[in-house]
Design a protein around this nucleic acid. Structure first.
Lengths: 219, 219
DNA sequence: ATATTGAATATTGGATCCAATATCCAGTAG
DNA sequence: CTACTGGATATTGGATCCAATATTCAATAT
């Protein structure tokens, strides 16, 4: 039978739609740290009832993106400088290993894809897109490692600090340096030098951590 | 005012109680891989409605302990050998770093506590307790590292493979070897030798991985 | 006998309603 | 004027009901 088929059983429930929208709003920084999430208000915005909203919020809490207190509601979970630093340390540990194991398995197609994201990142005039393209670039490289659990954990770590990185990319000269470092990482990958790619990734993450620490302290 | 006070706002909701009970049942292997979780049945067991049960299940899904399909329900998420192996590799990476950073900060009190768990583990006649005491031992050592995010991530990784480890501890001679390795790790910690503790932890985890692989292949 | 259809049942997803708790504010005592 | 009390309002947690989908199984056609 010739028919463009779709797996209907995987269509999104209302709860999933709300979850993804809230997650996006949080990691992009559209919802401020500490901002309360009112079930009623969100339900009205999505034209649904509070039940799927509650499910979405409880999932976000499990992901560490919101904190809730019984009968008081949920607020966006912000990170202290110490907490954010720890997440960076964690990323450094895991992402270095991921890219080390990814490099030997990168196909030319994948490298071309990563290069495209890298160039988009450098060329994009819209700061709102930087965070996305940054993640797409790194994600493309990491995807070659064939370690789905590692990648899912890194994604969650990234979710927690994404909004701070975005803010900092916009406010400082972080954009320029990020771009130079991306090119260096990409080059190491293209040459098949896993150790160098890992070392550069380490520097990239530690640099971002230091820069963010500077930025958060001054605030 | 002298009064033994309790923070009532942190008392557990029905959803939390169900979540924790299901989580425990899954990681202890009481619920088989692939076993469906019927909302109605669970609700009746806890004498509540399906609403908190659904919230519990959606949290479990976010933790990766169950998988659900729209309108079909949730089942306990089992791991293939490859998936389990990846989780072990991840644990090796993170737990080594955690114990390396924990060793310099271990107080005599903490070491005594860890030794107590270690001895309980060795002496416990009840296989049902082994998994618990094993986690308490490692958890006690790790708690000194003051890296709460790392620890929470390790906990989640452990949740995913706990039931397989338990089954294997019971069925093979894993218990004996685990005990010897625990003592060696503890000794390294007491001597303040972080690198040795990390190396022993690595061997401990890789040994468990190999042993589990053997066990899963034969099944 | 096997495959297909359609009704009956089971199960999940969501809406609405009620109860429990928190928050806010006016009133009152000191 | 300040601190406490009590009620009005807002918000969350849970129960019940309804709609949408899946599953099972009997009936039927080939």
């Amino acid at each position: 039978m010739k028919l463009k088929s779709v797996d209907i059983s995987r269509t999104a429930s209302a709860a999933t739609i709300v979850f993804e929208a809230l997650r996006k709003a949080i990691i992009e920084g559209e919802l401020q740290d500490g901002e309360p999430l009112r079930q009623d208000e969100i339900a009205r915005m999505f034209n649904t009832s509070r039940i799927p909203v509650r499910e979405a919020i409880s999932r976000l809490e499990e992901q560490g993106l919101v904190k809730s207190q019984r009968y008081k509601g949920a607020v966006v979970a912000g990170l202290s400088l110490e907490e954010a630093s720890e997440v960076f340390d964690f990323r450094a540990l895991v992402e270095c290993e991921v890219i080390r194991r990814a490099v030997p398995q990168m196909s030319p197609t994948l490298l071309a894809e990563a290069r495209a994201y890298c160039e988009d990142f450098a060329a994009s005039p819209n700061p709102m897109d930087w965070g996305d393209l940054n993640r797409k670039f790194h994600g493309a490289l990491y995807s070659a490692c064939a370690l789905p659990y590692h990648i899912s954990v890194v994604d969650n770590a990234m979710d927690r600090i994404d909004r701070y990185l975005r803010a900092q990319l916009v406010l400082s000269d972080g954009m320029e340096r990020a771009n130079i470092e991306h090119l260096a990482i990409l080059e190491a990958c293209e040459k098949g030098d896993a150790e160098r790619a890992a070392a550069l990734t380490l520097a990239h993450i530690e640099g971002a951590k230091a820069s963010l620490a500077e930025h958060m302290k001054s605030r």
